[in-house]
């Protein structure tokens, strides 16, 4: 089975459930979705026009068919909503772009991506800021001194915070990717388990199965990392992001939640499909909870940036707007 066959699975579930019910109502299958009453079965024996002597009229047969199909006519719709789940691979382009940005923002001895623990080699082009620090130290003008103090000296901590911000935004995409990968597997498992349960209703022993909702563990909570305040290592704000179980793998970075399980049993199509409906409702609930974690974390992150913008971008230096008329005053004299 595969996710791409979800609609076919839904159809198969309906057909197996109807087959069980109709056979027990005295019908036999005579073709694709074609059923006829047996000639001598329970109270339905007799003169049915066109087949083996049943007494049932066409309208009685139609009523039976409508009643049985009505028991399960919601099933295709339950799966239809899942047939257009996001494709996990569709998040790759954004993840790749943000990974490239991390490489450009990594400085000093290199950064560690907090969403997966991967080391990111330093971008040596950024070392040019250290060189300019020495150059500017000799100039006495207020604008030159302010630029050095507010922009050059804080560059490392601000770039580190931008690196972390980039990583958390990438982590949210990785969490979405993991979420939909697990959701696709889970809905496929529900369909597969339901078909198996329908096939095993008549077997010896209790017809029992369980469903583990791995989607609940797809969005992983990360350990908190502080954003640093300019020039010092004082934590001005701390943030714990989310990542994707797929990208983190077995690394002990976060706290993987145990997948909640739903125990199910049933000896009739109505019971089996009732369990299936419950499992689908539970899956939707777990998807919503997992995605809410991502949304909440992004809102929290946005709040931190809005409340501490100075941690993520230096204010525009006066020197950036110096012109021929004020450049000498702004720079002062070199010592």
């Amino acid at each position: 089975m595969s996710f791409e066959e979800l609609s076919a699975h839904a159809q198969e579930i309906v057909e197996k459930a109807m087959e069980w019910d109709l056979e027990r109502m005295g019908y036999m299958k005579v073709g694709d979705n074609e059923w006829m009453p047996r000639s001598s079965y329970g109270g339905r024996a007799g003169q049915y026009p066109g087949y083996g002597g049943s007494t049932m009229t066409q309208s009685e047969v139609d009523a039976d068919m409508a009643e049985v199909s009505g028991r399960y006519d919601d099933v295709p719709g339950l799966f239809d909503a899942f047939s257009s789940l996001p494709d996990p691979a569709s998040f790759d382009a954004g993840i790749d772009d943000l990974t490239a940005a991390l490489g450009k923002l990594s400085q000093g001895s290199g950064g560690e991506d907090p969403t997966n623990g991967s080391p990111t080699p330093a971008n040596t082009i950024l070392d040019g800021m250290d060189t300019s620090q020495d150059y500017l130290a000799r100039w006495t003008g207020i604008a030159a001194a302010q630029f050095k103090e507010n922009f050059v000296d804080t560059f490392e901590s601000i770039t580190t915070n931008q690196f972390l911000l980039t990583s958390y935004i990438k982590g949210a995409l990785e969490a979405e990717k993991s979420l939909w990968d697990a959701a696709r597997r889970n809905i496929d498992e529900i369909a597969e388990d339901t078909i198996t349960a329908l096939e095993e209703m008549g077997d010896c022993g209790k017809n029992e199965w369980s469903m583990a909702f791995s989607v609940a563990g797809a969005v992983v909570a990360l350990v908190a990392v502080p954003f640093t305040a300019g020039g010092s290592l004082v934590a001005a704000a701390t943030f714990a992001g989310v990542g994707g179980a797929l990208s983190i793998g077995g690394a002990a970075v976060g706290n993987m939640e145990d997948a909640p399980e739903l125990d199910m049993s049933g000896e009739s199509p109505e019971a089996v499909i009732g369990n299936m409906r419950e499992a689908i409702t539970k899956l939707k609930d777990e998807i919503s909870k997992a995605e809410q974690k991502i949304a909440d974390k992004m809102t929290e992150l946005q709040g931190i940036v809005d409340g501490h913008r100075e941690l993520f971008v230096a204010p525009r230096p006066n020197l950036a707007d110096s012109g021929p008329g004020d450049i000498r005053e702004d720079m002062g004299v070199p010592r």
């Binding site: 257009s84 789940l85 954004g94 979405e176 997992a290 995605e291 949304a295 992004m298």
Partner: peptide, 22 residues
């Protein structure tokens, strides 16, 4: 990448609004 049936997760485009703002 975020788009899906509106009955799934946080709606038609899920967490895109919060994510794209950040």
């Amino acid at each position: 990448a975020f788009v899906r049936d509106s009955s799934i997760g946080l709606g038609y485009s899920g967490a895109y609004t919060e994510w794209s703002a950040a």
